[in-house]
């Protein structure tokens, strides 16, 4: 039942479910009626307040149910609705329900950097050329190789007097483009904030709210941003952290708000986004349990045939090497212990007089002995030799 691992525990690509990312999020409206209070609209009176919170209200029944802009008596007639999603999401659709005759010109924008910069996702207008300098969207999506902001027909007035703005990322992408294999499409659907710019109201009044008929006023409800919490294929859900920020519940050795990097010890190969076919999990470095840190080396990774590029750092327990797989100078491998054993490397313990050095054979533990000296640590005279009084030549031939 773990979406990120198969029955055998092997990693597999996983994604959070489709949600309304705008639900319960604060909406900033550049215009709200009732500030200051007017005849039918008073932001200080709940019965006559048409706040922007009504656009993303989480539930229950309220009256009124619609946000309403202030009366717009003269140009500019732009009113902007901005919602921060609190985290990167991968968009699927955006919709906005109008409570009165829908505007005849709307621009939809997104930000990927929490509102610092904006790019258009699409336009909706009866005069694409005049309003946005664009041709109407082709019936079968953009002609180019990648997705682009197209100009769609303006929202149509429905029998109840309202209207629906509906944008689907699919409509602005060339057919056949696949999210797994297209970095361009991945970038296109990525957003942290959504902005709806209502640029030209219909010259008609409200037919759904109980308010008086007022020209030059926008009124809407149910701003929905359908999308998936962006976790790059390495999490099946997003959670609130201790500071109340939405973050991915990262798996596959990844970390970060979007699982966008490998965890510190998981750098045996470069980070990659998971796909439906390949998990591209970050792999832990192979350090035989003797190191807590490692670094990635691209040169070694290439030389290994793109299999392994991790280099262990600060090998402990007297081990050394890229994988802490051999003993450091002055130590040798104890054949009776596993390579991961804390005591896998034993001190050479070369005799201070009998040995010619302190470094022994790393496999056998044999110290380099002076002439006539024998033993693993060079601590005895060889047969036919006897101990002398000279520390330089500790064993001499027996007379």
């Amino acid at each position: 039942t773990d979406p990120c691992h198969d029955e055998g525990g092997a990693p597999r690509g996983c994604v959070p479910g489709l949600v309304n990312a705008a639900l319960g999020r604060e909406v900033l409206a550049s215009s709200i009626c009732g500030q200051p209070p007017k005849q039918a609209c008073d932001s200080s009176d709940a019965r006559r307040a048409h706040s922007a919170a009504l656009l993303t209200f989480t539930g229950g029944t309220t009256s009124p149910v619609c946000w309403r802009s202030d009366w717009l008596m003269q140009a500019p007639l732009n009113v902007t609705l901005t919602v921060s999603l609190g985290k990167t999401f991968e968009l699927v659709f955006v919709s906005l329900r109008f409570c009165s005759t829908p505007p005849t010109s709307v621009a939809l924008l997104k930000s990927q950097d929490h509102g610092r910069s904006w790019v258009p996702l699409g336009f909706f207008s009866s005069c694409c050329d005049l309003d946005y300098g664009r041709l109407p969207a082709p019936a079968n999506g953009p002609a180019g190789p990648g997705p682009e902001a197209l100009c769609f027909p303006e929202p149509q007035t429905q029998p109840d007097g309202g209207g629906l703005l509906a944008f689907s990322v699919q409509d602005s992408s060339p057919p056949g483009l696949d999210l797994d294999s297209s970095p361009v499409l991945q970038d296109w659907v990525t957003a942290t904030d959504i902005q709806v710019v209502l640029t030209r109201p219909a010259m008609l009044g409200d037919t759904r709210d109980s308010e008086a008929m007022v020209p030059y006023s926008y009124s809407a409800t149910e701003l929905q941003v359908g999308g998936r919490c962006k976790c790059n294929g390495h999490a099946s859900r997003c959670l609130l952290d201790t500071q109340g920020h939405l973050i991915c519940d990262c798996q596959h050795g990844t970390e970060g708000p979007d699982c966008g990097r490998c965890k510190p010890f998981y750098c045996d190969r470069p980070w990659q986004r998971a796909t439906a076919r390949e998990a591209h999990a970050c792999l832990a470095c192979s350090c035989n349990g003797h190191a807590r840190r490692c670094r990635f080396n691209m040169e070694l990774y290439r030389l290994s045939g793109r299999r392994s590029g991790g280099v262990c750092l600060n090998c402990r327990h007297n081990t050394a090497g890229r994988h802490c797989h051999y003993c450091r100078e002055g130590f040798y491998r104890d054949p009776g212990r596993a390579p991961s054993d804390r005591h896998a490397c034993r001190a050479c313990d070369c005799h201070p007089v009998g040995a010619a050095g302190k470094t022994c054979n790393q496999t056998t533990g044999q110290c380099p002995c002076k002439d006539g000296v024998t033993g693993l640590t060079c601590n005895r005279c060889a047969p036919g030799f006897q101990q002398s009084r000279s520390p330089v030549a500790p064993c001499v031939k027996t007379p």
Binding site: H351, P352, V353, G354, V373, T374, G375, N379, R380, C381, A382, P383, F385, Q387, R389, S390, P391, V392, P394, C395
Partner: peptide, 23 residues
């Protein structure tokens, strides 16, 4: 034949004081 281990007490360090290991 197992030879005895080197006896450190038998060595004369007079001319090799700088080589004498710390005990």
């Amino acid at each position: 034949e197992v030879m005895p281990t080197l006896d450190m007490a038998l060595f004369d360090w007079t001319d090799y004081e700088d080589l004498k290991p710390e005990v």
